[in-house]
Amino acid sequence: MRSMIVLLCGTLLGACTLVAAAASAPSSLPATSIYRIPPLTLMNQNGQTFTFASLAGKPRLLGMFYASCQMACPVEIETLKQVEHQVVKAGGQPIPVLLVTFDPAHDDLAALKKAAAQHHVSAPEFQLSRALSGDIGMLGGVLGVSWRPLPGGGFQHNVVVALLDRAGRIIATDPANGRADPAFVAAIVREERAAH
């Protein structure tokens, strides 16, 4: 991603302001693109790092999770596998999945690797990732995912998986709660075909 630094100088006194155009949000993205959130650098279960905005260009499924989650997150991951299976059955191509942990304090590389192995998912098709820098709260906000650490450990949270078009607009969302919703599957098939 190209980074642009503009030097604006006031007349006479040379009062200069550095304006760093957000490298991760090229102005070509539509105003409703989720890739416009402030820069976020992620690392996947293979230890590969990438910026969130670099994922623009392909439709994908995006959600959040945390690795030590006992119930909702395993269901989320297994539901997404079912959804992809149904997409293929309907004649479409599987689309890439990115899940970002909201528990980066505990979900280190080893935890991501372990969760990926448990669910038999592999990058780059199915990435489990954690933020290395940036504010995952912004990502949660635009996705509609909220979480609150509980005093006894774990989180109170919801699950939303969004189908993004290649520009990062949210086309459809799904609670990923155990059932591959045919309408969500159909939306993925449509989006994946449109992207060709």
């Binding site: 909220s146 979480w147 609150r148 109170q156 919801n158």
Partner: peptide, 16 residues
């Protein structure tokens, strides 16, 4: 965390 303050009847978090 205001969006996660309001669990619905199932104990899940509704959307903000």
């Amino acid at each position: 965390d205001y969006g996660a303050m309001f669990p619905d009847v199932n104990g899940d978090v509704g959307s903000a």
